[in-house]
Design a protein around this nucleic acid. Structure first.
Length: 687
DNA sequence: GGACCGACTTGTCCGCACTAAC
DNA sequence: GTTAGTGCGGACAAGTCGGTCC
């Protein structure tokens, strides 16, 4: 627990530093140049969307879409479960005749060779995507779990660890001491020097003090936490030095807890829970310039917990001597446990792991919605272009905002309560101060410069030429406004989403992000992949992935060890190059030798040397590819887009098409999350 | 129509365990 | 066997979006 706290501090400190760096860097424009085809290019070529549909003969997806529509209208469609399931299965098989029988054969053979164990594993892998879904809005019929795992109780400091106030030693009461340790653990970090942090901390700390402590401690600056801090450092060091046996013991204990609390039974299936541990108390550290940083995140007790499970299940027991706040049986929601957090007053949940049916279905549905957008995106684009000319200001604003959301993959931008969170914005909440207009900039006309902090206070900086009409509209929106005024004063996310709902059922602002991300991946893969070695193909994949990450502005702080590891790689490349030239020389010599002697032995030597050169060339190429990939990835995070925006079926299809093992693209967790896609997508899948 | 709430997705970060290299 | 490097997975903050109430 203590260890974790410390880690926290570390994280935040580093984060701050990197943010600052990012703020002053100008790499964005550079990275946009990496995008072979910017979203703008995609936009101006509407023909891309024509003649693009999969042939129904081999593609399973179009059928699935129907299912999706059905789920969109759960109340309207009521079909008997079994019947429908059978029907669907039948359709599925018809559809896949050839491929499917092949597949079946394969799995049969596999089962036969793997024997009993393999069979068992096969059975354990439940293909929920081949089953019927609920159409009545309920999420489950049966739910049983063991409740949450609470944070370990506070362990008071040993007496030898002292706290000093104004130079004098002072023994704190347990509650005050606990909060003090939270601060002590963060001592090395910059934000303990920040005014807001200190102020918030001090205020909340006082609430935990006895009246006597309150009267003595009146100034945070006179508090000396250094001994505490040293103690925790020593503890974490000791933890690292633990013997193998001790570490093994801890691991086993964790595994035991996982087995006991980490799974639930939902509708006849054992499913993995996502986060079954309750967050430990500590000092809140939001991201960016958060007004609540330093506040005390209080300990969650059983009395704060609401349990959700089915009536006929064995209810989880609260710890001895305690009670749950409530036990409810709501099958219209997916969570198992919830509580209200004290910093923002928001509700936190324990839900299932991404590999679960309930999350997977939703994910699949998300991509189906994005695919429906693909079919009507031309119409929508035509319409918003028309709307740029509207007589009504609100319609023009809506149309320009939608253009940004589509072209730049901006987030919707809900309003936020001022003073409650860091000052960040999305599209609808952009302010005048966040954009600059340049009628002409470096050979380009009508350039808009965006500079704002988005989600997680990550800076979005981009200069982008727009169409003349958009530019003129923006000038109009800016008229008579102060920098802190809203750019789109007649628009908010609710208006925008209502409009989008009218354009397409289920359409909201974020669907554009999903759609543009997935379509970009598909296009980039088509463009970049060529008949080449597997590492080169994977580089192409990563580049396509990277184009999406740039589009979505998914950044990361360059890894601490980046420069060093880059250097190491370069050294390796240099060595390989030396090796290569040496090998070539040897080959040349062998050839000359063979020319002179013409005997069998020298011919063989030539062969051997030739192969050696080939092998080294391959190794060198692999290293170079690795270096390129890593360099390009320095400040870009691929994970978020891979996990949340890219239709996994595109990647699966690509792997199948180019005979790349899926493991090269998805790790174990990702394969579990995308099991549905891996199972259903064939090599000709089209998003 | 707007404040507020609830449910759920998206996002970044870091330590640690694992792996590869020596 | 040791060490350096890296990818995974957990933690938890911060978004989106729909619904309700007034």
């Amino acid at each position: 627990d203590k260890h974790k706290e410390k880690e926290h501090k570390h994280k935040d400190h580093k984060k701050d530093k990197e943010r600052e760096k990012i703020k002053h860097s100008n790499r964005y424009t550079f990275f946009f140049s990496l995008l072979k085809r910017s979203p703008a290019a995609i936009k101006s070529e509407p023909e891309d969307d024509n003649g693009f549909y999969p042939s129904p003969k081999h593609n399973k997806a179009p059928k699935r879409e129907k299912d999706d529509d059905e789920e969109e209208y759960p109340k309207k469609v009521k079909v008997e479960h079994d019947k429908k399931a059978k029907k669907r299965k039948h359709e599925y098989e018809d559809d896949e005749e050839e491929e499917d029988t092949k597949h079946k054969k394969k799995t049969k053979d596999k089962k036969a060779t793997e024997g009993k164990k393999g069979k068992k594993e096969e059975e354990e892998k439940w293909k929920w995507w081949e089953e019927e879904r609920y159409t009545d809005g309920s999420k489950w019929r049966f739910l049983e779990h063991k409740g949450p795992v609470f944070a370990p109780p506070y362990e008071p400091l040993p007496n030898k660890v002292k706290f000093y106030y104004d130079g004098k030693q002072m023994k704190l009461s347990a509650p005050a001491e606990e909060v003090a340790t939270f601060f002590a653990k963060m001592l090395d970090h910059e934000y303990t020097t920040k005014d807001i942090f200190r102020k918030n901390f001090y205020k909340d700390w006082r609430k935990e003090m006895t009246s006597e402590e309150k009267s003595i401690i009146t100034d945070l600056n006179k508090c000396d936490f250094r001994e505490m801090s040293e103690y925790f450092k020593a503890q974490s060091e000791a933890r690292k030095q633990m013997s193998k046996e001790e570490k093994q013991k801890i691991k086993e204990e964790n595994e035991r807890i996982l087995q006991e609390y980490g799974f639930c039974i939902m509708d006849n299936h054992k499913e993995r829970i996502g986060n079954f541990r309750i967050e430990p108390p500590g000092l809140f550290r939001g991201r960016g310039d958060h007004p609540k940083m330093g506040m005390l995140k209080r300990r969650i007790r059983p009395e704060d917990i609401i349990i959700n499970c089915s009536k006929d299940s064995k209810q989880p027991k609260p710890p001895p001597g305690t009670k749950w706040k409530e036990v409810r049986h709501d099958n219209k929601v997916t969570w198992l446990v919830s509580w209200t957090e004290n910093i923002q007053g928001s509700i936190k949940y324990i839900m299932l792991n991404p590999s679960s049916r309930i999350k997977g279905e939703k994910d699949w549905q998300k991509y189906e919605t994005a695919r429906r957008l693909k079919k009507c995106v031309d119409r929508i684009r035509t319409q918003y272009r028309d709307d740029w000319k509207s007589k009504e200001m609100r319609i023009r604003q809506r149309a320009v905002a939608l253009y940004f959301i589509d072209k730049l993959a901006l987030r919707a931008g809900n309003e936020k309560e001022e003073g409650e969170t860091a000052d960040t914005v999305g599209c609808c909440s952009l302010r005048v101060e966040h954009i600059k207009l340049y009628p002409k900039l470096d050979e380009q006309e009508y350039v808009v410069e965006f500079d704002f902090l988005g989600k997680d206070s990550i800076r979005y900086y981009n200069k982008i030429p727009v169409e003349k009409r958009v530019f003129k509209n923006l000038q109009l929106f800016l008229e008579n406004k102060q920098p802190e005024d809203d750019l789109f004063d007649r628009l908010n996310t609710s208006i925008l989403n209502k409009h989008l709902q009218e354009l397409m059922d289920g359409l909201t602002a974020k669907v554009f992000r999903t759609y543009n991300a997935s379509i970009t991946l598909q296009q980039q893969l088509k463009e970049l992949t060529s008949e080449d070695s597997i590492p080169a193909k994977i580089l192409s994949y990563n580049r396509a992935n990277r184009a999406v990450a740039i589009l979505c502005n998914h950044q990361r702080a360059p890894p601490k060890t980046f420069e060093k590891s880059m250097q190491n790689l370069q050294t390796k490349i240099d060595e390989k190059q030396k090796q290569l030239s040496a090998a070539r020389k040897q080959l040349k010599a062998a050839k000359a030798d063979h020319k002179a002697s013409h005997d069998e032995k020298s011919r063989k030597t030539v062969e051997v040397k030739r192969k050696a050169v080939q092998r080294i060339e391959e190794q060198l190429m692999k290293l170079q590819v690795q270096a390129t990939d890593r360099e390009e990835n320095k400040q870009i995070a691929l994970g978020t887009s891979k996990l949340n925006y890219l239709d996994p079926r595109i990647s699966v299809a690509w792997c199948k098409k180019w005979s790349i093992p899926i493991e090269k693209i998805y790790n174990k967790t990702q394969r579990e999350k995308f099991a549905w896609a891996i199972d259903m997508a064939e090599k000709d899948y089209e998003f």
